[in-house]
Design a binder for these strands. Structure first.
Lengths: 226, 226
DNA sequence: AATATAGTGTGTATTTTTTACACTATTAAA
DNA sequence: TTTAATAGTGTAAAAAATACACACTATATT
């Protein structure tokens, strides 16, 4: 019978300036001191795993109620140099704006937390590279049948932002006209009487998610392939 | 920091006589003595979680190398009357034939193991009902983009068997002509020069999975909706 | 030998979805 | 007024999904 300690690690995704980013922390403790790693912590005795992850998210971003989902549990004996430590990995999706770009985590084991573009990731501690790849695969799939994309966008967004997000997650370009046609056909977007501000070119119309229709879509499933 | 014990539970699916079945055990130990439950056990110190599940599968079915995949980790404090016990749930898919219909599990905590049709499930111990529902949802999705169906069929099978399997998993009828057209179009089935035996009506042709093309499909994804 | 039974195997027309593709409109800044 | 940068729009062709019904075959029964 195994009596073991276990932790929760979280891949926190954000979308900013057309790029998908991941929040990494620089460790201030052994093992892997000074390495980059996913935010994570031990799960306390009196909390569910979900609660632990919400706590981790709050400690690292100052935000509550972030969208998150369990990904996978890693339990190899070799994944941690101090012996078997089971980790339940989650991913979280976050509305990122300029204010949240410089998080100051509230825990001692962290030197600092920095948003890293997916294209420029450092080497990660433990098996965190693997966890990150697995969560990418998960959201790549999930974005094509459920509206999780909107968790990464601000309340009001343009169709171009939405398209850039799909392109960032899938790592390939989409056709603008086909994308808009299909997305608008779902009928889950509400056209707002507002436009982008502060741009030096034609301002794009803003949309927001129509939450009444959103829930129907969760049953039917979206299907985006190209 | 939580020092806890953890277990692995496994939803074992089989397909027999056109019906999807789940292997349940009758518990011989408290808590939930005499209740039906999913096969499961404590994970030992020297094995990975995957190895533990393979061991559970072997102890309950006598078979090795069964297809399995991790599903979800449940860790609520309330899910187990003896306090917090984390369980990592897996599902497994099994080629069921008449020989395997009467398994005799090799462990003391089990009185007996019986295949139950999905339509006639008893009340289950712990949160096992919930785990079972979640694994059904998972294979319902997964069968539409990956060839896991073939893990449930014998080496050689008829198109009708394959269709019945999809129908059992999705819980709805499919059109025979459209199903065959689409399935054969994938090009992953190899037509054999053999036919069903021992039936009192026209014998159906046998097929088997073409494993060379199978791997390609794993990249491209299948897409079965109706 | 004829018939009943039970499941096998097959094609086409219609609708829907996906795809490919390029120019004009708008705004702010230079 | 021109330039730069992005917004916004439609159509035709191809591919995929759907709806739909009957003749064929092997065995068992009389």
């Amino acid at each position: 019978m195994l009596n073991s300690i276990f932790t929760a690690d979280c891949v926190i995704f954000g979308f900013h300036e057309g790029e998908l980013k991941v929040l990494l922390i620089e460790r201030n403790e052994y093992p892997f001191k000074d390495w980059w790693a996913l935010p994570g912590f031990f799960v306390e005795m009196d909390e569910t795993i979900d609660e632990a992850v919400q706590r981790i998210l709050f400690e690292h971003t100052g935000l509550r109620g972030i969208y998150m989902e369990q990904l996978y549990t890693f339990g190899d004996q070799k994944r941690h140099p101090q012996g078997r430590i089971i980790t339940v990995a989650y991913y979280a999706l976050l509305r990122l704006d300029d204010i949240k770009m410089n998080p100051s985590p509230q825990t001692d084991y962290v030197k600092r937390a920095v948003w890293h573009p997916l294209s420029e990731l450092p080497k990660l501690a433990f098996d965190h590279q693997h966890i990150l790849e697995k969560s990418m695969a998960k959201i790549q799939r999930k974005i094509s049948y459920s509206p999780i994309a909107f968790e990464l966008l601000p309340e009001k967004f343009t169709l171009t932002q939405l398209q850039q997000l799909y392109e960032a997650i899938w790592g390939r370009k989409l056709d603008k006209r086909n994308f808009r046609k299909k997305m608008l056909n779902y009928g889950i977007l509400k056209e707002l009487p507002e436009f982008q501000k502060g741009v030096s070119y034609r301002a794009a119309r803003l949309y927001r998610l129509d939450k009444r229709k959103y829930s129907k879509i969760f049953q039917n499933e979206m299907n985006f392939s190209k």
